[in-house]
Design a protein around this nucleic acid. Structure first.
Lengths: 340, 340
DNA sequence: GACTGGCACTCGTTACAGTCGAGTGCCAGG
DNA sequence: CCTGGCACTCGACTGTAACGAGTGCCAGTC
């Protein structure tokens, strides 16, 4: 498919205008607003080709052109440069994130910041347990047959689970259990833990074994297998911007999808290092989100990735700006985490 | 205002029909669907009175009648009986809530359950810290100048904060601190804690005092004053039911309000024992929610209240059914909490 | 005095026709 | 290969007319 430079310029112009105005853009308006150096008729010919190739389409016979998902894709891949952030945005990011007292606080501030800057729906995954290492395990007796297991990860994440023991155990045994699990597990990554946990059970002295067995079950099942990923969400009200034109009139499927943690994780949780992923409309695997685009990336202290964050919006989205913002926020959050 | 029985019956019929059909209801349709024993003309006269009194209104001159907020209020207060739950609903509640492993789990399941049963937006407040008592405080050294403070409440709630110490302290001192705070605070209600915390600082031996002071600040500021109430939300997709007729066409203000924790707390957090609160449209203090109604109640083990839960939907809502469901769910959750 | 049937009236909804104009595709000429 | 010109399409908007659900009012009845 031979798309010469001018045709690409036309596509870029269409995308930019459509994103800005939300209205199908015609050949005449295009030459007026951009210095293309050719007449509307020429542009029309180019448009015909672009349409044939599937990059743009006409909503109605006598309307202007609108980019297709494929058109946006080409735009993102070849026609757009990442916008540098404005100083105001930089300042906003810093102002927002200093003074966070807590991992919870960091995550909440981040997700709100993202929503505000991009004016889209923002999603932030808590640092993944699978990618964290254990800093400390605490066992707090609740009753003689119940323990509260508290796990503190190096990322600052704290998770707790109630452990229901098969039979009562004395306080001294709790101390022993605590010592044992900490000796064995502190510093390890939870995803690599299963064999270690098993070993813990096998090596326990007989009278501790039943308790240790339950404990290990809880550790494995609830912390690793059903790996308790957490998600923060903000900016759903932004979905209502742009009237009902975006998302083809119904927010329903979008809102439904946003309620499913699993879906969100799929969207932003599979980040690779220092890559920004852009999913445009159709490319999305989740049916409910076929009318939306997602920009996501990983974040973490230094160059390691502990979680993902991103935004979701209409396919008609300011990709360069959004990508820049998502990257910048991820970087700042990474720095923040590195300080701990 | 003399509203005889028949006029009240007419109002009830109008509310029921309108809630069911979402369409303004006229005099003819009314006599057809309800056994009022009079002619449409009579009903029209009654309607005229009801309209004069502000209980119903006409969207257009030649349309049927629609209840006003005031009409719904009268309906809720005097004309409706709380519907008993269907066996299916009871079963759904039990099925949903058994097997919860965790406070987080309980809250999440509850909020989803509520959303599903009422088909509205559901809100559940985590057990309030101010109404919980301290079960255990744990101090975990992160570095020589940092502690992780973990508080476990009797409601199962676990909160953690990073404590930044003014200067390094040895491990033994951490043990002392832990012992001191636990001796003094376990069993107390956090809302009554301030004097006790202050006493802790005053009574500390000199070399522990600086650390204890920071610790107490964290305890007071972040756990009590900025009382860390938490909220779970579900069912926002239900806002899109009933097309765009509810909420006068724009979900925007609703979605915005739902993003503010403070707003949500105001809605459901001020529950009094065993009362179900119903706020209809205008009665709501939050401007953004003037087009919505809220049904909320408190929950807690036994007869104490530790938090609130409720649902939010259009003023055109099945009040009897919703009230019944909210109450039932609150009761079940209370029982569940009582078991711990 | 309360209820009812009848009737004129209101007004939103729908259908239809006509106009307008943005935008297109195509073609002949530079 | 680009351009100006031109006929054509079709959605948006406007105005008109018919329709009908629903009302308010009034005179008559029990």
């Amino acid at each position: 498919m031979g798309l010469d430079d001018r045709k690409l310029a036309v596509l870029r112009a269409i995308v930019e205008d459509y994103v800005a105005t939300q209205e199908p853009v015609g050949s005449k308006a295009l030459v007026e607003r951009h210095q293309l150096g050719v007449s509307p008729a020429t542009v029309r010919n180019d448009m015909a080709v672009l349409e044939e190739e599937g990059y743009i389409r006409q909503p109605h016979t006598s309307a202007g052109r609108v980019p297709t998902d494929r058109g946006y894709r080409l735009f993102v891949d070849r026609l757009s440069r990442v916008k540098p952030l404005s100083p105001a945005e930089r300042r906003a990011i810093e102002r927002f994130l200093v003074g966070a007292v807590d991992l919870d606080d960091v995550v909440h501030r981040t997700v709100r910041l993202l929503a505000q800057l991009t004016r889209q729906v923002a999603v932030v995954q808590y640092p993944s347990l699978a990618r964290s290492t254990v800093r400390h395990l605490e066992l707090v007796p609740i009753s003689t047959t119940r323990l509260m297991l508290v796990m503190i990860a190096d990322t600052g994440r704290v998770e707790q689970r109630l452990v229901e023991l098969p039979r009562p155990i004395p306080a001294d045994d709790v101390i022993d259990l605590r010592r044992l699990v900490n000796e064995k597990l502190v510093g390890t990554r939870l995803s690599e833990t299963p064999p270690l946990v098993q070993a813990l059970v096998d090596e326990s002295v007989p009278h501790l074994r039943p308790a240790m067995a339950t404990l290990s079950t809880v550790l494995l099942e609830t912390l690793v297998e059903r790996h308790e990923e957490r998600i923060a969400l903000a900016g759903t009200a932004n979905l209502t911007r742009g009237g009902l034109l975006d998302f083809q009139g119904s927010l329903r499927p979008i809102l439904e999808a946003l309620e499913e943690e699993v879906v969100l994780l799929k969207l932003i949780g599979e980040a690779e290092p220092s890559t920004t992923r852009v999913l445009i409309g159709d490319e999305n695997e989740i049916d409910n989100l076929r009318a939306a685009s997602v920009v996501s990336t990983g974040y973490g202290p230094g160059s390691t990735i502990v979680g993902g964050l991103g935004v979701l919006g209409p396919t008609r989205m300011d990709y360069p700006g959004t990508i820049a913002t998502v990257r910048a926020v991820a970087r700042y959050v990474g720095e923040l985490l590195a300080q701990n």
